[in-house]
């Protein structure tokens, strides 16, 4: 085979350490990029949400709070993403049954349909 390389123990160890270091550095830098992007996106999403709230404090005080979309049978409010409340109720009942715990002792945070 062409260009085959034999390493002595020192070079072997060095290459192994270097390789592991490269993977770590690469993914650490990527983590920094993802964190920064995430922060920018979260800040962007917060801005439009805060703006209307600041504009109409009086209207907000006058109007009663809109009822949140609750999934039936949960011990709190569950965020539903692309999920029908009936399906959500069924999923929660199955989980409770599997865990053998009463449904009112479980807290479901969100249910999302995986497409």
């Amino acid at each position: 085979m062409e260009g085959r390389l034999t390493l002595n123990i020192g070079d072997n160890l060095l290459d192994a350490l270097l390789g592991y270091l490269v993977v770590f550095i690469g993914l650490t830098l990527l983590m920094c990029v993802v964190v920064i992007t995430g922060k920018i996106m979260v800040a962007k999403l917060k801005k439009p949400a805060e703006a209307p709230a600041a504009e109409t404090p009086a209207a907000k005080a006058a109007a009663p709070a809109a009822p949140k979309k609750l999934a039936p049978g949960s011990a709190g409010d569950v965020k539903l993403y692309d999920t029908d409340p009936r399906d959500a109720a069924m999923i929660m009942a199955i989980v409770a049954d599997k865990l053998q715990k009463p449904l009112n002792e479980l807290r479901f945070v969100s249910i999302k349909e995986v497409k």
């Binding site: 072997n12 390789g19 993977v23 690469g26 990527l30």
Partner: peptide, 24 residues
């Protein structure tokens, strides 16, 4: 949870450990 990337990096330990072992 971008910190997950560190765990993904850490779990490549076996790659370089086996690389070292195979050379030996």
């Amino acid at each position: 949870n971008p910190k997950s990337l560190l765990l993904g990096a850490a779990a490549q330990f076996g790659v370089f450990f086996a690389f070292f072992g195979a050379n030996l």
